[in-house]
Amino acid sequence: MPSKDNSDDAITTLRDSLQAIRSKKGIIGYILKAADSASVDLNDPSKIVDYAVVSATTLEEGEKLAKVFGLGDLNKVVLEGARMKLLLLARGDHRISIFMDKTVDHEAVGKDLNLA
């Protein structure tokens, strides 16, 4: 099935890219969610649930706001807090949440992933 092969290739490429940025200074971790699977890599694995909730809530409210303001399909959400920030990217069925220190340039992270 060529389409599944393509999808698998895309996921593999995405995982490789995420692994590459994972080693960068200030990156706290990521959650890659596909339709039927998820990959998680965080500095503190005990916070998986917390980060998953943050990611899901941000996506949910981001989609609501996109609808309210007629922004069309969601491409990217950046939630910047006083301590850290979340870059959430939506590509097809994939939702990529990258957690990083506040000082990290999220635009550069997105470019490194070739997704932003």
Binding site: V54, T57, V68, L71, G72, L74, L79, A82
Partner: peptide, 25 residues
């Protein structure tokens, strides 16, 4: 929506900025 994000924002240290980039705006 901001109210819904309150707990999320707290875990990030409070909201500074929320940016949403859509296909049309």
């Amino acid at each position: 929506s901001l109210h819904g994000l309150q707990d999320t924002m707290a875990s990030l240290g409070g909201l500074n900025t929320l940016l949403i980039d859509g296909a049309a705006g």
